[in-house]
Amino acid sequence: MDKDRQDFLREKARKVRLGIIDALGIGNRGHLGGSMSCADIVAVLYFYKMRHSPEKRGDPDRDRFIMSKGHSVLAQYAALAEAGYFGKELLAATKSLGSLLQGHPERHTPGIEANTGSLGQGLSVGVGMALAGRMDKRDYRVYVLVGDGELAEGQIWEAAMAAGHYALSNLTVIVDMNGVQAMGRTRDRYAIGSIPGRFAAFGWKTFEIDGHDVADIAETLDKAADVRGCPTAIVARTVKGKGVYFAENTHTYHNNLLTAEDREKAIASVTAM
């Protein structure tokens, strides 16, 4: 990928991160850490890989993105606002009473494809969308973003088995492996073992990438789209809170508030990335 394109995507990712800070506001609890860790992945999906358009939201051939780790929806809201699905001024109203932007994704929000938030369900929804695409002979792709902590949900593996059984090559799961869940480091709290190994055992083709390297993300998404005969899993090594120096690699900002001072520091930190 040429440098201009990489710079373009890095700038989009920065805007997603600034949008997350906007959506958090001041003094309101919100899921900063997991939103920041997936910001680069979400930016590459919306501004490089996916076939989508806010003007053609109902297009049956559009690619679908499901934020299965629904608490990280702030990253998706920021990307959708940046892509023009709704005005950026809406971000500041996230989670306020009556807002279009709820604490977890709901389908009535423009650009949100499925309700998620109860962890472990999004990959199954993706299986259903991929089955429908095959049935209708449409060539859209389905992308599902899951967290590494979320992989403790048994339903993930029911879905992995279904996708393997039906050889859903139009389905790609991306694991935001930030290594930190609500109460601490994933490997200490509830170890998951080899994530690529687990997906491979269910018949998936797997890739391992640096989830903050936009070129690595983009090129791997391209490779995944060329795989035939099985679903694809991209395991992305990421940093919880990436870009906000005081929130990196800690569960403290899994779901926390920013003071006015924190907010300024966070904006400066992201701007300096």
Partner: peptide, 14 residues
């Protein structure tokens, strides 16, 4: 569980 959520995905695609 997977069956019901997959059905939701199918419904979301018409």
């Amino acid at each position: 569980a997977n069956m019901v959520s997959a059905a939701a995905g199918l419904a979301l695609c018409g």
